[in-house]
Design a protein around this nucleic acid. Structure first.
Lengths: 225, 225
DNA sequence: GCGCGCGTGTGATCTAGGCCACTGGTTAGG
DNA sequence: CCTAACCAGTGGCCTAGATCACACGCGCGC
């Protein structure tokens, strides 16, 4: 791992070289294969993770076994912060959606590290604040939008973070099955499939396995709001 | 305003006397009557508020005018933190549900104040982290629970924070109309009313204007999960 | 080759809950 | 006091979407 990847992380983007190098001393690295679980909801644990490569999903399971995804995270994003300040069991299960690698930092090390560096504390606050804002947005969507709307919004978000623009459209290799997409927007697999099929039939996008090509961003955006 | 009220706020509960007194210098106080709006979603603003007395609701309005409540806050709770770190327009409208008073602190003052006091920064992080956790819980409920379940959960939460135990049950003066309760759980007024009527007919609670008396906490809890 | 499992596509029910249309009760203002 | 606004309570109808039940293709191991 090199300093560049860390700098991508919003949390650490303000670091100068020697701070970054110092930080690396406290970090350990780990890898997972697609489908592997890093930790389960309810586990105890006090590590903060930063995705170096690949994607993970944060999910929770209801009492009757159904699953709901809180977020898909990619390189540069962190997770596990909650148990740092609100110590207690992990509130979500983290599973690799693709092969993935992480840097991790213990509670203790982070706090030590934080005290001397108010600007990092502020970065952390900003990060969590923005997550909170996003969570509130998702709430509003669950209340106000219908399923196709939420699907459109999810696709746009994924496109934003993982899309590559080509001349035939924006290629989004989200690596999610339709089942996972459904869990992400809080709907059944079937209705999500129907929404996607509908978008495709209107020529807004093309479906590919675990991936879509968005051909008409504007229409999709209008459908999302 | 005296130091005691501030100490109630989780954010400041670790303050010693002179810190609390010093802080008061930076605070200003304000009051609202029931129904008054403190600020609107989309307004710019950089103040952090702490509720001294009364209750407020944080809400957002959808494009077609429907409303959704994110939270009901009472004495000791803070709001407006988001625009501190993720500066931008306010993400919610804040309205007084009862006559209420607040202490407020500007962005600038808080940050100055924060730099020297890592333990307050940590308090702030803990506060926001717990809000995030809660927001995620609400998401899961919107996906997994039915309306009566969400109503039950909301009542239990309100009881926890505002309830007074008496021998005929827990009296919860939530000060919300059923319409507001409905916006809080993301449902229509009518279905919430029916759920409440059903609970009452089972003898789990008694309805009073802007208030309920919970007579069978256990049953209600079981209905909530 | 032959199954088998997994992901995807699509129709046919069934139902929670939204929306509408009322009623009655309570408070506030003229 | 009368009227107007609000709030609470209830019934009926009607869609979005969950659930069920398939059928198809594609890759993988035997």
């Amino acid at each position: 791992m090199d300093n560049e990847v860390l700098r991508q992380a919003p949390l650490f983007n303000a670091l100068d070289d020697e701070a970054a190098t110092a930080l690396r001393g406290s970090l350990s690295e780990s890898k997972l294969r697609r489908g592997d679980v890093l930790f389960h909801e309810g586990d105890s644990g006090d590590k903060l993770y930063i995705v170096l490569d690949g994607k993970v999903k944060l999910g929770r399971t209801s009492s009757d076994g159904r699953e709901n995804l809180l977020a898909i995270l990619g390189p540069g994003q962190m997770f596990g912060e909650l148990s740092l300040f609100d110590p207690g069991p992990r509130s979500a299960t983290v599973t690799a959606v693709t092969d993935a690698s992480f840097a991790s930092l213990s509670h203790e090390d982070l706090l030590k590290w934080l005290d001397g560096r108010p600007q990092v504390a502020r970065g952390l606050l900003a990060q969590i604040a923005s997550r909170l804002r996003k969570a509130n947005d998702v709430n509003a969507d669950l209340v106000f939008s219908d399923v196709p709307g939420r699907v459109a919004k999810a696709l746009l978000d994924l496109a934003d973070r993982f899309g590559r623009t080509a001349d035939d459209g924006v290629h989004v290799h989200h690596d999610l099955t339709q089942e996972e997409l459904a869990q992400l927007v809080g709907a059944s697999r079937e209705t999500v499939n129907k929404a996607l099929a509908d978008f495709a039939s209107r020529g807004w996008l093309r479906l590919e396995p675990r991936s879509v090509v968005i051909m008409d961003l504007d229409r999709l955006r209008r459908r999302a709001r």
